[in-house]
Design a protein around this nucleic acid. Structure first.
Lengths: 250, 250
DNA sequence: ACCTGAACACCGTTCAAGT
DNA sequence: ACCTGAACACCGTTCAAGT
């Protein structure tokens, strides 16, 4: 099973050794890039340190010489995916700045949807968002006229909103959901009866596969562009209103 | 290691057999409750089907007779945690209805913070939110005057907002973050220099440990009540504005 | 300094066999 | 119908040993 490793010529292995076959250019960056590649290709569930090592043509323990544990590998992957969120254009209104960040974030995840489940665990805790970005966000809120506790609240609202929608939009949907849903829709007179759930059954045709918890495809197959636009406008509008009312309300 | 199982009297095992020692009252509900208990006590990372079986005084394979796989167990756990979100009081304004749901959701997770990482994967995909709740939410948006695509967008915004903040607030924070943060703060003149990050370094004292990505404790230790209030008001205010402008804007 | 080779202590899940 | 007992094919991580 583990043959012809250093030679790296074996065509038996599905993965071709990427680096160490030639020179020992192994380093955290190479490892992170390879990890993202694997996750993009095979999904997060299939990812393991052992697969990663295999893909790099190296023994598992080698990974640990560069990165201390699996979680840290995933943190690096998230940092890579989210490394380029800062809007390029300078000196725009704070509203447009925020809008750009929201769009960039979603776009970044859209190009690597399989990392979506990592957003909450990796973004919030360890700062994988660059300090430049955080500074930009806080600066935007300050320019909006916020300060003190209200600025703190607005910052948290923005960050919650930033990751919340996208994390869900691209969250993987269990394979059996499609069938389970089919059953639900078929027995609509049962579980989703007009008497018990009037609003739901009335608007179901409209919401079907276009809404969270009422869909069987995720954002990769069924994007939610319009909803995201409305959502972002809601957040920005909310900040505007917060700035108008002032930071006086307890 | 696996001794005196059916007798269930062994005090060597840290876990006391819960059910099957007496009668075989084993069923999905009992299993789910036991799983939640374990997750509450030991955290999600320590949870395994084998531990669960052990805790129930039963062999791992037994679990699979009632619930087909590990993910399904976790789905049941989420359904249990989120089973009681619907506001009791009837006939209030749609604004108050939404506010109640937001508060109930956060409160439910606050009582079982260790399930926070499951929110995105389990809530969005499989409908662990009851149909009653979904109907209530859609009904509230309809009462707000929304319809068509705008209602869809608003529904998605509400659901994204509902789970986004809380999932993050109670997300577990890696053990080493505290130290890593300490280092960051110590070298503030380095990484967080006033020249490079003016807004961040200016407001850092205010944001420190009170904001996402700038904290070393999660919502269990450092709650974010005020931010959540502002956040919820932003969302509800956004829906109001959306209803006023009508569903005309493309 | 960097990597091998093997081991340790776990997993989720399956399956024949018991009752 | 319900559970045992053991196995299969994996994990993350550690560590002595090589170079």
């Amino acid at each position: 099973m583990r043959v012809a490793r250093k030679a790296g010529k074996s065509a038996k292995d599905a993965d071709t050794a990427v680096t160490t076959a030639s020179g020992q250019a192994l380093n955290p960056e190479v490892i992170t890039a390879a990890a993202l590649e694997l996750i993009d290709r095979d999904g997060l569930e299939a990812f393991s340190v052992r697969n990663l090592a295999n893909h790099l043509g190296v023994y598992p323990a080698t990974i640990y010489w560069y990165i201390p544990n699996r979680n840290e590998v995933l943190a690096h992957v998230m940092a890579l995916v989210l490394s380029d969120l800062l809007p390029k254009v300078r000196r725009r209104s704070w509203q447009l700045f925020l809008k750009d960040v929201f769009c960039n974030f979603r776009e970044a995840i859209r190009q690597h949807p399989n990392v979506a489940p990592l957003i909450d665990s990796q973004v919030t805790s360890n700062a994988n968002l660059s300090l430049d970005l955080l500074d930009g966000l806080i600066g935007a809120l300050a320019r909006a006229g916020l300060s003190g506790d209200t600025l703190v609240a607005a910052y948290n609202a923005v960050l919650a909103a930033l990751v919340g929608f996208t994390a869900q939009e691209f969250a993987p949907i269990p394979a059996d959901t499609r069938d389970a849903w089919q059953k639900h829709v078929d027995t609509r007179l049962g579980a989703i009866s007009p008497e018990r759930h009037p609003a739901l059954s009335r608007h179901l045709p409209l919401l079907s596969n276009r809404s969270f918890t009422l869909r069987w495809q995720n954002g990769s197959e069924a994007p939610m562009d319009r909803s995201y636009e409305v959502y972002v406008d809601m957040i920005i509008g909310g900040i505007e209103r917060l700035a108008e009312t002032g930071s006086s309300q307890s």
